[in-house]
Amino acid sequence: MSAVIPVSTPISQPFWEGLKEEVIRVPRCDECSHWIFYPRRHCTHCGSLSMTWREISGRATLCSYTLARVPTLEEFAADPPQNLAIVTLEEGFNVNSSLVDIEPGDMRIGMALRPVFAPVGDSGARRLLFTAA
């Protein structure tokens, strides 16, 4: 199980701590307003080193998804078929995720999604998953 528990770094910690409080915090560039995901210490758009962590709504749409008929890792074998998703936040950046409580036949690229702050076992960590809005 250990590899699937996210391990935060000094750079990303506010993101993972936010999820525990059921909020999504992402750094935004003070110079060009670009959202920086995954968190880094420079703006990938303009190179600025000045940024501020901001809370976002989590409103999102489905960018792409697949059903892994062969689990990608044994930790995901419990509830087949394993679903993987790429989600576009309304701020315009993508995150890796997974969809919950949506039947595979109802998954549609472009569908509106809202965040689910899902605990990873009893590790205390949470993952950012999504479900239909």
Partner: peptide
């Protein structure tokens, strides 16, 4: 390690599948 693996995004098949799914759409 931080933003792919915890979501099961590992290996090649699913990445290519999601590109194909986007293309399909």
């Amino acid at each position: 390690a931080e933003f792919d693996i915890p979501y099961g995004h590992v290996g090649q098949n699913t990445g290519y599948a999601m590109i194909a799914q986007q293309y399909a759409d």
